[in-house]
């Protein structure tokens, strides 16, 4: 049970650091990279420790990771090219 409360404490520390970063003057790119890294670390900690994925058989862990994370990443990779040139597309189309 102690392990869960250590995880809880680390998650809280991450949350506080993220809030601090939001008020600090950090270059935008570094800020975004840090936030996404912190978010994924927090998510991994919840999955591994609270949801017990680190005790599960590799077949279940891989099914979850491939099924959820990889599919989501593919979804974003498919969206990003259009999203990145959306304003250009709007000009080409002549209307929003």
């Amino acid at each position: 049970m102690r392990g869960y409360w250590i995880t809880w404490f680390v998650l809280l520390v991450f949350t506080v650091v993220m809030l601090w970063a939001d008020t600090a003057s950090i270059p935008r790119l570094a800020f975004v990279v840090f936030m996404i890294a912190a978010m994924l670390t927090k998510a991994s900690m919840i999955g591994a420790n609270f949801m017990h994925l680190r005790f599960e058989r590799a077949s279940l862990v891989l099914t979850v990771i491939v099924g959820l994370l990889v599919t989501a990443v593919i979804l974003y990779i498919l969206i990003v090219p259009d999203a990145a040139r959306i304003h250009e597309m709007v000009v080409e189309g002549g209307q929003r």
């Binding site: 599960e56 058989r57 077949s59 279940l60 099914t63 979850v64 959820l68 989501a72 974003y76 999203a83």
Partner: peptide
């Protein structure tokens, strides 16, 4: 998976529901 059917089904639900949120957050972006 060395897990009972309930746990496996719950994980299946979590994957599909998680993808729903992933799509939602993608649309938001």
């Amino acid at each position: 998976f060395d897990a009972g059917w309930r746990k496996v089904m719950m994980w299946w639900f979590i994957i599909t529901d998680g993808l729903l949120f992933a799509g939602f957050l993608g649309a938001y972006g």
